[in-house]
Amino acid sequence: MSAQPVTESVLRFVSPPPGLAPLTEFSLTSVTPELYSLRAVEADDVRLFLLDPRPFFPEYEPDVPGAVLTEIGTQDPAVLVVVRPSDTGSEPSANLLAPVLVNLETGSAVQTILEGTDQPLRAPLAR
């Protein structure tokens, strides 16, 4: 998967991310070099945080089906993961089971659930 940094842009999901239907267009804004804010264009109050997993999970290399890559038009997407911020008594975590894949040239994106893997839904982020 791509080692290129993600830049701020508008992402158009080929299908709504799980739980966010019917929303498909989002603005992606850098918060830190590894952390991004993903805000729905049509619903400003809908926001997720995405993380570049490489600094935190260097071994993370999701096995994405070719059909999913074809959907967004690249064989070398940028890979981001959804972050669950910490709340009372819990550490922040990353969803390694359902990465967000981005075609950096077109802004086409998809969140896919990896099949046949033991990747965690909530992988703790080291502080």
Rank of each mutant, 00 (worst) to 15 (best):
M1K: 07
M1Q: 12
S2Y: 06
A3V: 14
P5M: 07
E8M: 08
S9I: 03
L11N: 07
R12T: 15
F13Q: 08
S15D: 07
P16W: 02
P17D: 07
P17Y: 03
G19Y: 06
G19E: 13
G19T: 14
G19C: 12
A21I: 09
A21L: 07
P22S: 13
L23I: 11
T24A: 04
F26G: 04
F26Q: 09
L28Q: 06
T29A: 14
T32W: 04
P33A: 08
P33W: 10
L35P: 11
L35Q: 12
L35D: 02
Y36G: 08
L38T: 09
A40H: 02
A40R: 05
A40N: 04
A43S: 15
D44T: 15
D45I: 12
R47W: 04
R47Y: 03
L48P: 00
L48T: 06
L48W: 12
L48D: 02
F49A: 09
F49I: 13
L51C: 11
L51P: 04
P53N: 03
R54D: 11
F56N: 01
F56H: 14
P58H: 09
P58E: 02
E59A: 12
E59G: 00
E59P: 00
Y60C: 08
E61A: 15
E61S: 14
P62R: 12
D63K: 14
V64P: 04
P65Q: 11
P65H: 08
G66Q: 13
A67V: 13
V68A: 12
L69C: 03
L69I: 10
E71Q: 15
I72H: 09
I72R: 10
G73V: 10
T74K: 09
Q75S: 12
D76I: 08
D76Y: 05
D76H: 13
P77R: 00
V79N: 07
L80I: 10
L80H: 03
V82Y: 00
V83A: 10
R84F: 14
P85R: 13
P85W: 11
P85G: 08
S86M: 06
S86D: 15
T88Y: 05
T88R: 03
G89P: 06
G89N: 10
S90N: 13
E91F: 05
E91Y: 04
P92K: 00
A94Q: 05
A94R: 00
N95R: 07
L97M: 13
V100L: 07
L101Y: 02
L101R: 01
N103G: 04
L104V: 12
L104I: 10
E105L: 06
E105Q: 13
T106P: 11
T106E: 06
G107C: 04
A109E: 01
A109N: 01
V110F: 00
V110P: 00
Q111F: 01
T112Q: 03
L114A: 01
L114Q: 07
E115N: 09
G116I: 12
G116C: 05
D118M: 10
Q119T: 12
P120N: 08
L121P: 03
P124F: 02
L125N: 12
A126Y: 06
A126F: 02
R127F: 02
R127N: 10
